[in-house]
C-alpha cells in the first residue's frame, strides 16, 4: 500500500500538506478581507500588498534590526497594521460616502504603488528568510517527512482564526463590530464611536494580512510579487465562500487549499486554474456563495 491510483502515498501526503499550508494563507487572508468588507463595505485590494509588506517587515527586522522570527511575528503585524490605520484615516475614510467601487480602485492603486516601490528597491528575484531555529527539522512519519515549521504554520493560522472568531463573537468590542456591520447609523446613535471602529477594523484586517505574510516568509521567498499572486486567488475564495460568515470564509480557505493540493497530484496542469473553475461552478449553482446570504 504505497500508492493510490498510481500516485505514491508520499507524494499525495506531501501535496496535501502543501495544500493545507496554502489553505492556511487563504483562510487568514480571506478572513481579513471579510471583516473589512463587513464593516467598511470595501474590498481591500491592497490586502495582498499588505501581506507582502508583512513578509518584508519580517525580513527587514531581521536584517536591519537583528530581531528574529518571534519578534517579527508580533512586531510586523503591529507596524503594518499601523500603516493600514494611517491609510484608512488619510485616504480610504474620505471615500465612504461614494460608490464602493472607488474604494476598490483606490486600494488597487495603493497596491500598485507598494508593489512598485518594493520591486524597485529589492528586485523581483526574492529574498531568503530562514526557518527559526526552534522549528527547524521535522518528524519522520511512516509515510512522509513532516517539517516542524509547516505544522506550526497550520496550528498558528488555526489559532489566529479561532481567536478572531472568539473576539468577534464573545467580546464587547466584537459585539459593537457586529452591530455596526448590521446598522452603523443606529450604533452611532447609541454613542459608539463608529469612525474609530472603522479605523480599528481596517487596521486589524491589515494586521491579519501582515501576520500571514510573516508566516509565509520562511516558506516562500520574500518577494514583491507574492501579494499580487495570491490576492486574486483569495478573491475567488471569497466569491466561493461568500463573505456573509466569518467561519464560512475560514472553512472555504482551508478546503480550497486542500482541493488545490489534490489537483496537483492527480492533474498537475489544472492546479493553477482549479479554484477559478470551482468559482464558475459555484456561480452557476449557488451565486451567493456557499455560505453567503443573498441581499
Amino acid at each position: 500500500m504505497t500508492a493510490i491510483y498510481g500516485v505514491p502515498l508520499q507524494a499525495l501526503f506531501g501535496q496535501l500538506l502543501l495544500g493545507l499550508i496554502n489553505g492556511s494563507f487563504y483562510a487568514v487572508l480571506s478572513l481579513g478581507l471579510a471583516i473589512i468588507f463587513g464593516l467598511l463595505n470595501n474590498i481591500n485590494f491592497a490586502h495582498g500588498a499588505q501581506y507582502m509588506m508583512g513578509a518584508f517587515a519580517a525580513w527587514m527586522l531581521l536584517n536591519y534590526a537583528g530581531l528574529g522570527f518571534w519578534w517579527a511575528l508580533i512586531l510586523a503585524p503591529l507596524l503594518v497594521g499601523l500603516f493600514g490605520i494611517v491609510l484608512e484615516r488619510v485616504l480610504i475614510s474620505r471615500l465612504y460616502r461614494l460608490d464602493h467601487l472607488y474604494g476598490f480602485l483606490l486600494t488597487f492603486g495603493l497596491a500598485l504603488i507598494l508593489q512598485g516601490i518594493f520591486q524597485s528597491k529589492y528586485g523581483v528575484s526574492g529574498l531568503a528568510y530562514a526557518i527559526p531555529g526552534e522549528l527547524a527539522g521535522g518528524q519522520r512519519l511512516p509515510f512522509m517527512f513532516l517539517p516542524n515549521y509547516r505544522v506550526f504554520v497550520i496550528v498558528a493560522s488555526l489559532a489566529v482564526c479561532l481567536s478572531v472568531w472568539l473576539a468577534i463573537e464573545k467580546t464587547m468590542l466584537g459585539a459593537y463590530l457586529r452591530a455596526a456591520t448590521e446598522n452603523p447609523a443606529l450604533v452611532a446613535a447609541f454613542g459608539v464611536n463608529v469612525p474609530l471602529l472603522l479605523t480599528l477594523t481596517y487596521g486589524g484586517g491589515v494586521a491579519l494580512a501582515a501576520f500571514a505574510g510573516v508566516l509565509a516568509a520562511p516558506i516562500y521567498s520574500v518577494n514583491p510579487n507574492m501579494g499580487a499572486d495570491i490576492i486574486i486567488v483569495v478573491f475567488a475564495v471569497v466569491v466561493i465562500g461568500g463573505m456573509g460568515s466569518i467561519l464560512g470564509s475560514v472553512v472555504t480557505g482551508y478546503a480550497l487549499g486542500l482541493v488545490e493540493g489534490l489537483t496537483k497530484v492527480f492533474y498537475p496542469e489544472g492546479s493553477a486554474t482549479v479554484i477559478y473553475v470551482i468559482m464558475a461552478l459555484v456561480l452557476l449553482i449557488k451565486p451567493a456563495g456557499l455560505f453567503g446570504r443573498t441581499n
Binding site: 468588507f37 474590498i43 464602493h100 467601487l101 476598490f104 486574486i232 486567488v233 478573491f235 475567488a236 471569497v238 466569491v239 493553477a272 486554474t273 477559478y276 473553475v277 468559482m279 464558475a280 456561480l283 452557476l284 451565486p287 451567493a288
Partner: peptide, 25 residues
C-alpha cells in the same frame, strides 16, 4: 453569463478571477 450573476464589487472580483483563469490557460 457567469459574472452577471453577482453585482457591484463581487462583479469586479469575479471578472478579475475569471480573467486570471484565462491568463493561466
Amino acid at each position: 453569463s457567469l459574472a452577471i450573476r453577482r453585482q457591484g464589487i463581487y462583479f469586479a472580483m469575479i471578472t478579475l478571477a475569471l480573467a486570471q483563469m484565462i491568463y493561466f490557460i
